[in-house]
């Protein structure tokens, strides 16, 4: 190693950037060359001078608190956004609005909707579930079947006013290639069932506690409490809800479903 090469490496050697072999050669050269040794020493002293004398700006005492607060706001916003982004929750929220409208209309109009005994719905679904070759193979099949057989609205009429309905359990089920949520209710010792049919893969209900379903319960301005569930986009939509007076399984027809989705913000679809 000559002086030129050695001085090219002086800064790297000082900064710990030289590999061991090159560093050894560099040190050997310095041992034999006083001029280069002085040069290397000058580099070291310049570096040290900068380290000792460089001004360190005092960190404002409030800065850490300010950064932590902004991170907390960001984390809260991210959590909020993630809920908003959850497609099944968005759909549920949209359908809640639809359900509120339907309930409002049903509540204030004298014309009773076409009611179908919920047990018939249950029996039909249970039969389909037991059938090895389910007829509901395509998205929309089940919804169409429900709609064709039971009309727009199915209602369990056996409930009387002021009867309490308790959600006693739920499980995931499937009908053909559709997913469904089977909700079980208890009404004065009598078990009731309703099914919520999903057009897509069922949301990860196994990660939710049962109380999460309770968050689907909504007190309407007219005093009714509804428990609502979500829908499908590709197939038919099923919305179940119950109030203190009645228990409904509402099957949306295509038109209403498309209306709901047409009014959704495109970013929420």
């Amino acid at each position: 190693m000559n002086c030129h090469e050695a001085m090219m490496l002086a800064h790297e050697a000082l900064d710990g950037e030289l590999e061991s072999i090159a560093l050894e050669s560099f040190k050997e050269h310095l041992a034999d060359c006083d001029a280069c040794a002085r040069q290397a020493e000058s580099v070291r002293r310049t570096k040290k001078l900068l380290w000792v004398k460089a001004r360190r700006e005092p960190v404002p005492p409030q800065l850490e608190r300010r950064v932590r607060a902004s991170l907390a706001r960001e984390a809260a916003q991210a959590s909020k956004d993630s809920w908003v982004r959850a497609p099944w929750l968005r759909a549920a929220a949209a359908l809640l609005v639809a359900a509120a409208v339907v309930l409002f209309v049903m509540h204030w109009t004298s014309e009773e909707p076409a009611l179908v005994h919920a047990e018939i719905v249950h029996e039909s679904l249970a039969k389909a579930h037991r059938t090895p070759a389910s007829p509901f193979k395509k998205p929309g099949d089940l919804g169409r079947h429900l709609f064709d057989n039971f009309g727009r609205t199915a209602c369990y009429p056996g409930l009387q006013q002021n009867q309490d309905i308790q959600l006693s359990g739920w499980c995931e089920e499937s009908f053909g290639d559709r997913n469904a949520l089977h909700l079980r209710y208890d009404c004065k010792g009598k078990a009731l069932s309703c099914f919520v049919i999903f057009g897509d893969v069922i949301p990860k209900f196994d990660t939710l506690e049962q109380k999460a379903l309770g968050s689907h319960m909504k007190q309407l301005p007219n005093g009714k409490t509804i428990c609502y569930c979500t829908c499908s986009r590709e197939g038919r939509t099923v919305l179940c809800y119950h109030s203190s007076k009645q228990h409904f399984v509402l099957v949306f027809d295509r038109e209403l479903e498309e209306t709901v989705y047409a009014n959704l913000d495109p970013t929420l679809r």
Partner: peptide, 30 residues
């Protein structure tokens, strides 16, 4: 780059010029 410096350019920073490093560092302020 330092490779082109000649040894006499580094006089002040030589160990022999100002032996005590603390004194050397104290020569400089802001």
């Amino acid at each position: 780059p330092a490779a082109h410096d000649s040894p006499h350019d580094v006089a002040m920073f030589e160990r022999n010029s100002i032996e005590n490093e603390e004194i050397f560092l104290d020569l400089f302020g802001d």
